[in-house]
Nucleic acid binder design. Structure first.
Lengths: 351, 351
DNA sequence: ATCACACATGGGAGCGCTCCCACCCTACCC
DNA sequence: GGGTAGGGTGGGAGCGCTCCCATGTGTGAT
C-alpha cells in the first residue's frame, strides 16, 4: 500500500546507495545507469530504473559536483550598475533565449551581479572557485578585466557583443554594421540627403560599428561624410536630447536622423517636436533595437531589429559546446567562434 | 618570490586543509573562522585570515553544501510559457530588486524556468532535491500546483502577487485596490462621469482587485457601477483592442477608460484613434504599471506605478528571513508575512 | 594547592557522489 | 581443454567541507 509512492513527506531523500540496495546492485552500477553509461546490461538497467522511479530518486547535485568537479550550471554575469541594462528589454530577451537553450539540457542558470569593485572581486573569486562550468558575459565594456580573468582561469566563456574586431573570447553579436547600413540606405531611398546620426558611447564596439555602417552607406551612395552631422550620445534618452539639440544648432538643414538606439531616438524626437519639426515630414527618424518603445512612439519608430533572444540562445549553444569540448581532458579542439547574427530593418511611420 | 600571490595559474585551488597547515592550526579552527564563529581567539583568527589571504582561499561551495545540507542560494521560478512575462518590464525590475537585496548577502541567485509540464515536474524534483534554500515565485496562476508543493516540502517560499485573499504562502504584492481607486478617483476629479474599465484576466487576483478598486471608487463617489462599462481583457495589446471595440459599441457615450495594464491601454488607444476619438479631449485614458511604453505613448499615458523593484527586494528580504528562521532546527517562529506595497498614480497628458 | 568549569582547539566521521581498479563470468580462440 | 580477451559489476578511495566530541589550557572559587 503506497510503498511505491514517489516519496512521502519532506523526509530524507533517497540516496544512490538506497537505490542500489533496492535494485540489488552495487553503487557503481546505479551511477552508470544514472549517467547513461553504455556499460550496463539491458536487464540491470531496467531494474535500476524501476528502483529509481519507485523511490523517486533525484541525484544530490552538491555531492555530484564535489565528486565530479563540475556543477552542471552556467552563470550569466549581469553588469548591474548600468541601470540601462535593466531598463532596456535587452536583459529580458537575452535571458529568454538563454533559458530556451538551457531547457533542452539539464544545466542550471545562475545570475550573478558584477556591480562595483567589491562585487567584481568576489565574482572573480566565485568563478575561480569553479562553481560554474561556464560563463556568459553580456554588455561588457572595452576595459573590463573580467573576460581576460576568465581566459586565464581557463573557464569557458562567451561574450555578447564583442569588444573589438579581434575579440579573444568566443562571441555572439548582431550585425551592427549591416543594420546601420540598411537604416541609412533606407533613408537615402526615401530621398533624404542630409542625414545626421547620433552615436552611442564609442567605447562600445557595437556603437562604433553602427557609426561605421552609417559612413559606409553614405560613401557607397556617393555622399560625403560630414563630421558636422555626427553627434555623440551615450545611449540614454537625455543623451539623445542633447545630441539632437547640438545637431540642430550645427545643421539646421538636416532632413533625417539615424539614432544608435531607440532610447536616444526618443530623446531626439522630443527635441524635434519642441522645435516644431514634424516627423517624418520635416525630419525622418530611425532608431536601433526595435524595442517596445519603438512600436509605441509617436509616430511609430522605424528601427533596426536585433535578434536578441536568438543571441541569447546562440551564446548558450556556443558555451555548451565549449564546455563539452573542455571536458574530455582540458584539450580544446574547437575553434573560437565569432558569430554575427543578421539584423532587420523594421519600417514604420517615422521615416 | 611571489609566494604571497593570490594563486598562480588555473591550477589547483587551495583547500581548507592547506589553509590550516599554513596557519598552523586545525581544520576545525579554519572552518570556524571562515564561518564567523565567535569561539576563536583573536590571535588565531588573525593568523588564519592571513593564511586565507595569502593563498587566495575560497571555500568550495559544493563541499559546503554537501556537508552542511544547505546551498546558500535561492531560486526564482520564471513561468516561461507566458511570453507576457518577458515582454513586460516586470521581469527585469523584479530581478533587479532581488539582485539588490542579494548583493548584501552571499547568497546566489538561480533562475529556473517552469515551462510546460515536463519542466514543472523536473523543477519539483529539483527543488525537492534541496538544491536551493528558498524559492521566489513570480506571476503564479491561481491553479498552479507549485506553491502547495513547496509548502508540503517545507521549502521556504515567497510569492509575488498573492493568489487569493488568504494566500497560504508568504507574499508581497502591490496595492492594486488602492491603485485602481486612485486612478478612477483621478478621472472623477477631472470631471469624467462615464468611466469604463478594461480588466485583466480575472483569475489573476491582482486584476480582480483592480476591478474592485474601480467599483469602490465609483460607489464611494455616489456613482452607480454599470456592467456595460466593464470589459474583460487579458493583459495583451490585442485584448485591449478587442475590449475597447466592445466598449465603444456598447457605450458610445463613455468619456474615460481605466485599463488594467499599460499594454491594454496601448491597444485601447489604437482603437480610439482609429474611430477618431481624441485623447484626452474626448476620452481620458489611464493605465496600470507605468511601464516604459506609458512614457513614450502618444499622448504620454497616465498610469499607476507599482514599485516592482521594491517588491523584488522585499520578497527577497522576507525569504531570507524565512530561511534564517528555518535553519535552527526546523522550528518556525515567524508569522507568515503578507506585505502590500503602496502604488502611486503618475499623471501625464492622457487624462 | 585542588577542583571545577569555560573556553579554545584538533581531528574523526561522515555528507552522497564519481572514478577507477579489481574481480568475475562468459564467450571465443588455438 | 586451457588460455585469453573483454564486457559487466562491486566497492574502496576520495572530493572538501561541517559537525561534534574529545582534548588541552587557563581562570577563579574553595
Amino acid at each position: 500500500m503506497g510503498s511505491g509512492q514517489p516519496r512521502g513527506r519532506g523526509g530524507a531523500r533517497p540516496t544512490l546507495e538506497q537505490v542500489a540496495a533496492r535494485a540489488g546492485v552495487g553503487r557503481g552500477t546505479v551511477s552508470r545507469v544514472i549517467n547513461g553509461s553504455p556499460r550496463v546490461s539491458e536487464h540491470t538497467r531496467a531494474a535500476v530504473e524501476e528502483a529509481v522511479a519507485e523511490l523517486g530518486y533525484v541525484p544530490n547535485t552538491a555531492a555530484r559536483a564535489l565528486a565530479a568537479n563540475r556543477t552542471d550550471s552556467i552563470a550569466v554575469v549581469v553588469p548591474e550598475p548600468e541601470s540601462r541594462f535593466f531598463a532596456e528589454p535587452y536583459f529580458s530577451d537575452i535571458i529568454h533565449g538563454v533559458g530556451a537553450a538551457l531547457a533542452e539540457t539539464d544545466m542550471q542558470l545562475l545570475l550573478t551581479f558584477a556591480g562595483g569593485d567589491r562585487e567584481r572581486r568576489s565574482l572573480a573569486q566565485y568563478l575561480s572557485a569553479h562553481r560554474v562550468d561556464g560563463v556568459l558575459l553580456v554588455s561588457v565594456h572595452a576595459d573590463d578585466p573580467l573576460p581576460d580573468l576568465l581566459r586565464q582561469l581557463g573557464i569557458p566563456a562567451v561574450i555578447s557583443g564583442r569588444r573589438s574586431a579581434d575579440e579573444p573570447l568566443a562571441s555572439v553579436d548582431s550585425d551592427n554594421f549591416a543594420g546601420a547600413r540598411a537604416a541609412v540606405g533606407h533613408l537615402l531611398d526615401r530621398g533624404r540627403r542630409t542625414i545626421a546620426t547620433i552615436t552611442g558611447r564609442l567605447d562600445v564596439y557595437g556603437a562604433q560599428r553602427r557609426l561605421d555602417g552609417y559612413r559606409d552607406a553614405l560613401t557607397e551612395a556617393g555622399h560625403p561624410v560630414e563630421e558636422s552631422l555626427i553627434a555623440r550620445g551615450d545611449f540614454t534618452e537625455d543623451g539623445g536630447r542633447r545630441a539632437m539639440t547640438e545637431l540642430l544648432a550645427r545643421r539646421p538643414d538636416l532632413d533625417a536622423v539615424f539614432a544608435g538606439s531607440d532610447v536616444m531616438a526618443a530623446g531626439a524626437r522630443q527635441v524635434l517636436r519642441e522645435v516644431g519639426r514634424r516627423i517624418p515630414d520635416d525630419v525622418a527618424l530611425v532608431g536601433f533595437d526595435d524595442s517596445a518603445i519603438a512600436r509605441h512612439m509617436d509616430p511609430p519608430l522605424t528601427s533596426v531589429r536585433q535578434p536578441i533572444t536568438e543571441m541569447g540562445r546562440t551564446m548558450t549553444d556556443v558555451l555548451l559546446a565549449e564546455i563539452a569540448d573542455t571536458r574530455p581532458a582540458g584539450t580544446r579542439h574547437l575553434a573560437r567562434q565569432q558569430i554575427v547574427l543578421p539584423t532587420e530593418l523594421v519600417c514604420r511611420a517615422s521615416s
